[in-house]
């Protein structure tokens, strides 16, 4: 029983990690309708920033969020304005995908140039201290990720449903032409949304950096699962991404323990393919779905 609870806890912790990485990705996809293949590299940039700020300035990794989140917002906004927006009128939508793949490669090589191939370890600052919570053990840094991922989802949902700017963002996703007629500056909404999505991954990077070693390839490691999570949750659905992340985290954890750690990914992608076959639009594509296409 104790082992089961421990495996369950590990799954939830892993799920919250995937969730906080995936939320920004699904937001950008749902509104701007661009699959950002550089999302993982945004995470990598955020983790390096956290590393640099923590080691040079000697501040707590979590405190760097005041600088890392705005920096990532800027990176996302600039990407939309100067890379995606000029391509939006292109005849072929896929050009935007190639552009983000190109950006991803450029950022990886830029990181290699600046930081070399060695891994950079952000000081743990007590976040890798195990906590004993009844029968289960977990790291304080993992609890922080769980709390933060829930907070990010709740804040985003509130922003999108209760503020005028949030409503405008949803309006653009639901009917771009009508949004223009309401006087919404659609290009500006796209820039803002891309920025917010990137800022979310900025928050993720601050939380992940103390727990995982930073390297130029770290983004690829996380983002593949993030894509699975986003598709599973229904593209553009923030609540769905959270639920999808939990499902993937739990499958990963349980399959790793009860079937064999070599077969974790087989189980994850097996279930993923099964769900895709049975429900291609994702598990949660109702009210929360931002990318709803009008009839």
């Amino acid at each position: 029983m104790n082992t089961f609870l421990q495996v369950l806890t590990n799954g939830i912790m892993l799920g919250s990690l995937f969730a906080i990485v995936a939320v920004g990705l699904t937001l950008i996809f749902g509104i701007v309708k661009v699959v950002n293949f550089a999302h993982g590299e945004f995470l990598m940039v955020g983790m390096y920033l956290t590393y640099v700020l923590t080691t040079w300035m000697g501040i707590h990794p979590f405190a760097t969020v005041i600088l890392v989140a705005p920096a990532l917002f800027l990176l996302g906004a600039v990407t939309q304005r100067f890379l995606i927006q000029p391509l939006m009128s292109a005849d072929d939508d896929h050009i935007q995908i190639f552009a983000t793949v190109g950006l991803s490669t450029a950022l990886i090589n830029l990181a290699l140039l600046v930081f070399g191939a060695d891994i950079a370890s952000t000081p743990a600052s007590g976040l890798r201290t195990p906590l004993q919570l009844g029968p289960v053990r977990l790291l304080s840094g993992q609890v922080a990720i769980l709390v933060a991922s829930i907070a990010v989802v709740v804040v985003l949902q509130f922003f999108l449903s209760r503020t005028q700017t949030g409503r405008a963002i949803r309006a653009v996703a639901q009917n771009r032409a009508a949004a223009q007629l309401m006087g919404i500056n659609v290009n500006w909404i796209y820039i803002l949304t891309f920025g917010i999505g990137a800022a979310c991954v900025g928050v993720a990077s601050v939380l992940i950096a103390p727990l995982y070693p930073t390297s130029s390839g770290i983004g690829t490691y996380f983002v593949l699962t993030a894509f699975v999570v986003v598709v599973l949750g229904g593209l553009g659905s923030i609540g769905g991404a959270f639920a999808g992340a939990m499902i993937i985290g739990l499958i990963d954890s349980f399959a790793g323990f009860y079937i064999g750690s070599d077969l974790r990914e087989v189980a994850v992608f097996g279930v993923f393919l099964l769900i895709l076959i049975l429900k291609p639009s994702g598990l949660f594509s109702s009210r929360l779905n931002l990318s709803h296409v009008s009839p």
Binding site: R170, A171, Q174, N175, A177, A178, L181, H292, S294, P295
Partner: peptide, 10 residues
């Protein structure tokens, strides 16, 4: 606009 063009999920 023609065809109403409301925001269906709002």
């Amino acid at each position: 606009p023609e065809g109403r063009q409301l925001f269906p999920d709002m």
